[in-house]
């Protein structure tokens, strides 16, 4: 059996009197992607921020590679959290954005150059190395953002609706790129989206957050069978145009 890279046990989070997450249990296998579905305000982003260490849970435990990380600073978790916006540093060009994590780790200059150029080649953007963020398109910015995250080889990647701001064509291309990257670089990731189709396309398995509760499905078939997932309703909707 494949080992879990991430385990969350009985996690609660409240803001004042409002309970945002209640008794959350989640597991993520190594080199797998779990899609997290949920409506706006359902607590998806809060959950990712807690895993990244940017928010703190009221109760519960988080394990990464079997070690509890609940009280460890975000800097020491080796978990990268990517926002919906690419958030490229505006004072750095594409090359330096990708090199950001390596420079923090004081990687030798020779290795930085080699690794960053390799990553830019891989992302299909070697000719954009000297461009600033405002000279890149939305899709290009998101590619650089992925490159910047993956070059430091994080244990876990948290993606908070990363393609939410892209047009449908670019979105589809980015989904394909991410699938390919996840496979080639053996990424473990939690992919948050409110788009049902995207959740199915991107995830090896799916979880759905509703009113602060998380229901995780072991595979896509189980997700399809669940009446609450909304997949059957979606299928029925499209069937009416076929019959």
């Amino acid at each position: 059996m494949m080992e879990n890279i991430l385990e969350i046990k009985n996690l609660d989070k409240t803001f004042g009197k409002e309970t945002v997450l209640k008794n959350i249990n989640l597991s993520l296998k190594k080199n797998a992607v779990v899609s997290l579905l949920g409506a706006s305000g359902s607590g998806k982003t809060t959950l990712l921020k807690i895993i990244a260490g940017l928010e703190h849970q009221n109760n519960g435990e988080i394990f990464l590679n079997g070690k509890e990380i609940s009280n460890i600073k975000p800097q020491r978790r080796n978990i990268v959290y990517l926002y919906q916006e690419a958030l490229l540093f505006p004072h750095l060009n594409a090359f330096e954005n990708v090199a950001f994590g390596l420079r923090l780790r004081k990687t030798p200059e020779k290795d930085v150059k080699q690794k960053v150029m390799q990553m830019l080649e891989y992302l299909g953007m070697p000719n954009h190395a000297t461009k600033m963020a405002n000279q890149l398109s939305g899709g290009q910015r998101q590619r650089i953002s992925f490159g910047r995250a993956m070059i430091i080889e994080p244990s876990l990647l948290l993606l908070d609706e990363p393609f939410g701001a892209l047009d449908s064509t670019t979105r589809q291309k980015m989904q394909e790129l991410f699938k390919e990257l996840a496979k080639t670089m053996q990424l473990s990731a939690l992919f948050v989206t409110h788009d049902l189709k995207e959740a199915i396309v991107m995830g090896d398995s799916i979880g759905k957050i509703m009113k602060g509760h998380l229901k995780q499905h072991s595979d896509l078939r189980e997700f399809y069978e669940d009446e609450e997932s909304g997949v059957k309703k979606e299928v029925e909707f499209w069937k009416q145009f076929i019959n």
Binding site: A52, G53, L54, K73, P74, Q75, R76, R77, N78, I79, V80, Y81, L82, Y83, L87, F100, G101, L104, R105, R148, A149, I152
Partner: peptide, 8 residues
């Protein structure tokens, strides 16, 4: 926050 998760 982003920089924090990169280890800064």
């Amino acid at each position: 926050h982003l920089a924090k998760t990169f280890g800064a």
